[in-house]
């Protein structure tokens, strides 16, 4: 098996440079690659374009990169709950492209499947459709949306092996699988890293061919954005 193992987050992100386009997995703070984000923050890489469903909160997730003004542009579907983000957006420091959540997922999926574009009805008749090609199939209008191109995809999995195979837990799967498939270089951080043969091939969510570097992160904070309990 081809060994994809690297020592840590610093090594995994060592060739990410100013101006790169990154995909970052996660939904809210669930399943975000917190170790790689920390490494990107301490390395201080700037002018990044980040494709991620959300932008973290003020002091966690991508919010940490925003605090350091490392992000030039965000491509996201929902960016509420982040005051620094809103400030940078309204002051014009940050460029933001808001796109429907399904479109975000499908543009990742298209990249991972080698398809140049997809058609979706999401955004028809709205400002999302401005400047985009519309095609009618069976009486319904669809927008042409292009596959993403990202230098790096950074994802967080539950378990992985050194061959790069990944397994996710519960709803932390979210965008992580499709982004893992979509990066030119894909970096996976995992809670448990095992040798080839120790994961059941029937249970793999992302096959290792899509993953270029894998490392085990430790002491995951896994912050909860909205802890809600029943009484």
């Amino acid at each position: 098996m081809i060994n994809k193992k690297v020592a840590n987050a610093e090594e995994a992100i060592n060739d990410i440079k100013d101006g790169d386009t990154l995909m970052l997995g996660g939904f809210g703070l669930c399943g975000i690659p917190e170790k790689c984000i920390a490494a990107l923050v301490s390395k201080g890489i700037k002018n990044l374009t980040c494709i991620s469903n959300n932008a973290g909160v003020d002091d966690f997730g991508i919010g940490l990169m925003l605090q350091q003004k490392q992000v030039k542009k965000m491509v996201s579907s929902y960016v509420g709950e982040n005051a620094e983000f809103e400030r940078q957006l309204l002051s014009g420091e940050l460029d933001v492209e808001l796109i429907p959540q399904g479109t975000l997922a499908f543009r990742c999926m298209a990249a991972g499947y080698g398809m140049p574009a997809i058609f979706t009805p999401a955004g028809i008749g709205t400002e999302v459709a401005i400047g985009k090609e519309v095609r009618n199939f069976n009486g319904k209008d669809y927008l042409l949306e292009k596959a993403f191109e990202a230098n790096f995809a950074i994802v967080k999995a539950w378990k992985g092996d050194t061959a790069g195979n990944l397994i996710f837990k519960a709803t932390s799967r979210n965008f992580n699988t499709v982004m893992a498939m979509a990066g030119r270089i894909t970096i996976a951080e995992v809670e448990e890293l095992v040798e080839p043969g120790e994961l059941d091939p029937n249970q793999i969510h992302v096959p290792g061919i899509y993953v270029h570097r894998i490392f085990k992160g430790s002491d995951y904070e896994k912050r909860i954005e909205k802890k809600t309990t029943s009484i």
Binding site: C30, K169, K226
Partner: peptide
Amino acid sequence: PFPREIEVDADLINAGKQTI
């Protein structure tokens, strides 16, 4: 439904980011 305190799992949320 929402979890009891002991069932809370950071990896299990709904689209409103609430633990479920």
